[in-house]
Write a protein that binds this DNA or RNA. Structure first.
Ligand SMILES: [Mn+2]
Ligand SMILES: [Mn+2]
Ligand SMILES: [Mn+2]
Ligand SMILES: [Mn+2]
Lengths: 220, 220
DNA sequence: AATAAAATTTAGACAAAACTAAAATTAAAA
DNA sequence: TTTTAATTTTAGTTTTGTCTAAATTTTATT
């Protein structure tokens, strides 16, 4: 099956929301897609017509298996392109999302297969998010929020759950990226901020909000 | 200025036709774009409105300076992506056009600048066509049709003027590509076909039609 | 110069994707 | 359990890009 750019964007949006909540509702998707609820309803009819969606009027909706496969396909393309932009074209990680948002809609199975090989079949994108393989299979890793890590334990940054350009820009200033080694030294009870050591550099302090959105795994 | 995908395709189509004939007419552009004359007229109004076109009803049309700059920009993107697909992703040269036809519409100045650098600022695409620089400047080379080359002279293939997939597939079978060294050995008066030597391989025979569409320059 | 043919434009329609405003349905509060 | 509020859908428009059929203009031919 082949989808329009708009359909692909909606499919991806629904997939993202249903990961957390199961059923998705119209207003939430409208917010996610930066559009109006009425536009969402229009698209839901099309996606149901194309048998990608379980949907009953007023009752919420979610992707069926065909829909999930379609979503994973778009996610795969998006993350491979992001990897390309950062690893090959040397973009900063906070600049690649809007470009990948367009590149993900180029439809050529051979293009993506060749791109995947050219990049060395990467498992994670520049933000630490897993890249589905061509069958939609996603690699999983055990990870924890930095805010739950005990003091003095060495950990490696594995992903970032808030991926706004603002957040990524902030982490860039802290020199925190995927793969960076960290140690939590101290927690300040006043506002929950953490003193951490980044790689072999001086210690610095990050807010509780930042800590909650940085995910890490054990050093290997 | 920013253009829609459809506008960019039309601009490129007009540019291509006006290279040869100066003024372009509606039916020719409709044929080039595989669309209907009425659709062309509609688009001409939009492009004139955007001040890219010299156009008077019933009198033909051509791009003005702004239009030419816009066209060169799309051509630049198209050819850089083709170069990427062949040199980095190892596509055959007869498979890249339709994919580049989509990639050329991704609008990000930084993306194209970085891609250009990543590719080593190439001057020619996989079919030997010149790649405009970011100011729209095009490198020129002296070249002649293979059908006009004297016998025994060593020449190098520089471009191909018929770029249908069928033609490119045929040249692939002859192992003729951009940069290939050739020598014309003999012309058969019966049908104008040429006996040629390709690189250091055995001699073979190509039709007059093929010879006319292969362009070469002196060996350097 | 009149007529026929070809090229081009206009008029009107359609599909996709968005919107606003109003109606319908469901959920929450009094 | 009414009443109110929030959510969702419908109805009707708009924009972009396409189309067909008909009208207009230009070009070619008698
Ligand atoms: Mn997108
Ligand atoms: Mn990402
Ligand atoms: Mn194109
Ligand atoms: Mn080319």
């Amino acid at each position: 099956m082949n989808f329009t750019t708009s359909e692909e964007n909606y499919i991806k949006g629904i997939f993202h929301l249903q990961q957390e909540n199961g059923l998705v509702n119209t207003n939430a998707l409208a917010a996610e897609m930066q559009t109006r609820p009425a536009s969402v309803t229009d698209m839901l009819k099309k996606l149901k017509e194309k048998k990608l969606l379980q949907y009953e009027k007023y009752k919420g909706f979610k992707l069926n298996e065909a829909g999930k496969k379609a979503a994973l396909d778009v996610v795969r393309k998006h993350r491979l392109w992001e990897f390309f932009l950062v690893e090959k074209l040397k973009f900063d990680w906070d600049k690649v999302h809007p470009i990948a948002e367009e590149l993900e809609h180029i439809n050529s199975v051979e293009l993506i297969q060749r791109l995947d090989n050219f990049l060395g079949n990467p498992s994670f994108d520049p933000h630490g998010d897993p890249i589905p393989d061509k069958n939609g299979k996603i690699p999983v890793i055990k990870q924890q929020s930095l805010s739950e890590i005990p003091f003095k334990k060495n950990v490696t940054v594995s992903s970032v759950s808030n991926q706004t350009a603002q957040m990524l820009d902030m982490l860039k200033h802290y020199k925190i990226a995927i793969g960076t080694q960290l140690t939590v030294l101290k927690k300040f009870e006043f506002d929950g901020s953490l003193e951490i050591k980044v790689s072999k550099q001086n210690a610095c302090i990050i807010s509780e909000q930042v800590a909650k959105n940085v995910f890490v795994h054990d050093i290997q």
